[in-house]
């Protein structure tokens, strides 16, 4: 059991909250940082920002070989999560769910889906994956 690891950023993980460097505009997600990964400002003035529940695929692969607890084929992407307001997006890894290779490309917009990422013991750890919008499956 590793409760502390998942509790530290639970608010960000479940609400897509980022932290924007006031010196350079870089957005940290999900860590609430005190230094800036881009401009190196330290201590950095970081302002909490809300990210949208959608992402734009920057690049991706479709995984065929993974341990058994991850179903394959598993598309995984680097996604940009735009801010609700003005400013730069946060850039993060996003697992895709219910999405096939044929449905995605660089630039495809995907929506955030609240899903079980894995479990800690028996306890589900829920956060976001991404998928093409459900209505596109009709």
């Amino acid at each position: 059991m590793s409760g502390p690891r998942y509790e530290r950023t639970r608010r960000q993980d479940q609400h897509l909250i980022g932290f924007e460097c006031q010196a350079c505009g870089w957005v940290s997600f999900p860590e609430e940082k005190r230094t800036c990964k881009r401009c190196g400002d330290a201590p950095a003035e970081m302002t909490e920002v809300q990210l949208q529940e959608r992402g734009e695929i920057q690049t991706f692969v479709v995984q065929q070989y993974l341990p058994d607890d991850i179903e394959t084929p598993q598309p995984v992407a680097i996604v940009d999560l735009p801010q609700a307001g003005e400013g730069e997006p946060a850039r993060a890894y996003g697992l895709l769910t219910e999405t096939d290779l044929e449905e995605i490309d660089v630039g495809t917009e995907v929506v955030a889906r609240f899903r079980e990422l894995f479990s800690d013991g028996e306890r589900p750890i829920n956060s976001f994956k991404f998928s093409v919008p459900r209505e596109e499956k009709a």
Partner: peptide
């Protein structure tokens, strides 16, 4: 790659990491 960490490369094996640059 079955790493139980959120947003930190779960599902990203080495071929995935480099494959993303290829894509």
């Amino acid at each position: 790659a079955a790493l139980e960490r959120l947003w930190r490369g779960r599902g990203v094996t080495m071929p995935a990491y480099f494959g993303m640059r290829a894509t």
